[in-house]
């Protein structure tokens, strides 16, 4: 009883949120699990097929394409987004005139419904009339490269994802403010250059947070890249932006292969877990070494 009370004391602020999460996300996810091992089209009762769906995924070249695409997009967008967010956080953490406005601007894309900004990007990327085409043209790059070249299309997708850095900036600003000001004063008195301060002080102090954010962001990027892939590049060209969640969506809601879609989602979940595990391993190592 005492332990329960202690537990509740610690958790009673987060409990409602966790419950809601369990209800809205955990439960459906759990219910999707048996689906992954059955053949279900939504119309007939599910039929158990054991590992059939997973075997099918193993032999499905499009699954591997989609997985590769998702990982590539994440590999581009997660480090770039973190880097950009870090830069912005370091620029914006000090209270200055107009900083509030800039912070709000950095956060705005994350608060906009993704369908809205995806449509906006559709206009920006319009190969004849959009500003992006003009920009590419100025660098002597064909303005429709992202429509014809799978690699370019994935980079465009990663680029679009960069703008979802608002939450990262907010967290990093908070983390930066947590670093004692006296450490910066000391560095100044000791004559450390701006680069040394960044490398020896700011970066190592932010590292645990950065790694944690990288974990979260990598898992999230599987999902946030779904809307732009669906709206903007539509999975093309040459399946170059067919991302895993898009493939799951197509199988489930377009082709009515709910069982197969659930199996693919399960695979996606496993890959996400793996990525997080790898990063947590590094995080542990770093925090054991660091402060």
């Amino acid at each position: 009883m005492n332990r329960l009370r202690a537990f509740l004391h610690h958790w009673h602020w987060t409990l409602p949120g966790l419950l809601l999460l369990a209800l809205l996300l955990g439960l459906p996810a759990l219910m999707a699990l048996p689906l992954a091992f059955s053949d279900f089209d939504g119309l007939h009762p599910p039929r158990a097929v054991g590992l059939g769906n997973l075997a099918k995924a193993w032999n499905d070249p499009l699954f591997w394409t989609a997985l590769g695409n998702s990982l590539t997009v994440a590999a581009w967008s997660v480090p770039l987004r973190l880097l950009l967010a870090l830069g912005l956080a370091l620029l914006l953490h000090r209270p200055r005139r107009g900083v509030g406005l800039l912070r709000a601007a950095a956060l705005a894309p994350s608060l906009t419904p993704d369908i809205a900004w995806a449509l906006l990007w559709l206009w920006i990327l319009n190969p004849l009339y959009g500003p992006f085409a003009w920009l590419l043209g100025a660098f002597g790059i064909a303005p429709d490269i992202w429509l014809t070249d799978a690699v370019a299309a994935r980079r465009v997708l990663a680029l679009i994802g960069l703008w979802l850095l608002g939450e990262l900036v907010v967290v990093l600003i908070a983390a930066r403010k947590e670093i004692p000001a006296e450490l910066y004063d000391l560095s100044a008195v000791e004559g450390a250059s701006a680069f040394t301060v960044f490398r020896r002080l700011t970066l190592p102090m932010l590292l645990p947070v950065l790694l944690l954010l990288a974990c979260r962001d990598a898992a999230l990027s599987f999902q946030t890249s779904f809307t732009p892939a669906l709206i903007i590049t539509k999975g093309g060209p040459q399946f170059g932006t067919l991302l895993l969640p898009l493939y799951v969506y197509q199988n489930g809601f377009e082709y009515l292969r709910f069982g197969y879609a659930a199996a693919l989602a399960l695979a996606m979940f496993a890959v996400t877990l793996l990525m997080i595990a790898v990063q947590l391993f590094w995080l542990r190592r770093w925090t054991r070494l660091g402060g």
Binding site: L186, V189, E190, A192, R200
Partner: peptide, 30 residues
């Protein structure tokens, strides 16, 4: 950094992620 003064702060301002030796060396290395 160019005044040639040293300061010891109330909180001591030791870098938590550096060892004692690295903390001691910080100014000289900088």
């Amino acid at each position: 950094g160019q005044r040639d003064v040293a300061m010891m702060f109330q909180s001591y301002a030791l870098f938590p992620h550096l060892s004692v030796l690295e903390n001691l060396c910080f100014g000289l290395r900088a």
